[in-house]
């Protein structure tokens, strides 16, 4: 019986999500200018839902101090309250008696912000080196590629843990460590994409015209390598986000009292054995964002591959 009601709830949630996606798509098509709305019309419901969710997350992250009923770190009530015990604390309280809802909202700002900065850093390092390796070639290419081969032979999470032991656990260190590890994956893709472009005639012509390295990268190669790199940015963001959450969950990432979804799961984990869903809420917030980003990326990849046919 419990299983059946669970399935019903799941079905209801999926229908609600699809309806929200449809509403968002209709609204977005109506508001946006012509060129954009034409593309939006082709979005499947999953991708529309994903875009809606991403916008909501961004809004919550920016407006955190306005929306949150309490402050990020203030102890406002008794510990371990169930959701619904007290109307003042909609999602209950955590192990120290801080309001879960407020911390969830502030964590959107902290976790998503840090993940975004990390991904951007990984992208700058990885794509600049990848494009350089493809254009310059020769010993630079060999050196960078072999280094990346070896670095990728170490499992990412283990490597991150090893590096964090060496440099010590702090937010800056975590950002740098994950950015370096993830930039190896970006390097691979950027190099592979650019390899196909540098052999084109117009690049040859640009070289003969005497264009410098920087201009070659920014004006000739980057515009044509943009589509796969943007899709990769979405996927990378998911991986980085999950890694940061995992590290924070292990107590090695974002440090208290800063609110973070991974660390919040860890703090409230004991409540789950008493039938309290509180620890699932931050975990679900992580899952919802990664699923949304994946939906949008899936649509973009599909579109990119469809244009080639």
């Amino acid at each position: 019986m419990g299983f059946l009601t669970g399935l019903l709830w799941l079905a209801a949630a999926i229908i609600a999500a699809m309806a929200a996606g449809w509403l968002f798509r209709t609204a977005a098509v109506a508001v946006t200018p012509r060129g954009v709305s034409k593309e939006l019309k082709t979005a499947p419901l999953t991708a529309s839902f994903g875009m809606l969710m991403i916008i909501i997350y961004i809004l919550v992250a920016f407006l955190a101090p306005v929306i949150a009923p309490f402050s990020e770190t203030e102890v406002v009530g008794p510990e371990f309250m169930f959701p619904g015990d007290d109307p003042a604390f909609v999602l209950g309280t955590d192990n120290l008696g801080r309001d879960m809802l407020s911390r969830m909202i502030y964590a959107a700002r902290n976790t998503v912000g840090i993940a975004f900065v990390t991904t951007a850093l990984a992208f700058i390092i990885g794509s600049v080196l990848g494009l350089l390796a493809a254009i310059v070639g020769g010993w630079l290419d060999q050196l960078l590629s072999r280094t990346v081969d070896v670095l990728m032979a170490i499992p990412a999470l283990i490597f991150a843990l090893l590096l964090l032991t060496i440099v010590g656990t702090s937010i800056i260190n975590m950002i740098l460590v994950i950015a370096v590890i993830d930039s190896t994956r970006v390097f691979r893709l950027a190099r592979a994409v650019a390899m196909n472009i540098v052999v084109m005639d117009y690049v040859e012509a640009a070289k003969l015209r005497g264009e410098g390295l920087w201009r070659l990268i920014t004006r000739e190669i980057l515009p044509n390598a943009m589509a796969p790199l943007v899709a990769e940015f979405g996927l990378r963001f998911c991986f980085v986000f999950l890694t940061i959450s995992a590290l924070s969950f292990l107590g090695l990432g974002i440090q208290p009292p800063t609110a973070d979804w991974g660390a919040m799961v860890k703090d409230t984990a004991t409540m789950i054995t008493f039938g309290n869903v509180t620890p699932l809420l931050p975990a679900a917030a992580i899952a919802l964002l990664t699923v949304s980003v994946n939906f949008v990326v899936d649509w973009q990849l599909h579109r990119a591959s469809g244009l080639k046919e």
Partner: peptide, 18 residues
């Protein structure tokens, strides 16, 4: 498949415990 790839491991673990 697409969603389970996006879920953090501890989310799956705590759902199962729950």
């Amino acid at each position: 498949a697409l969603s389970s790839i996006s879920f953090p491991e501890f989310f799956v673990a705590y759902i199962l415990i729950f």
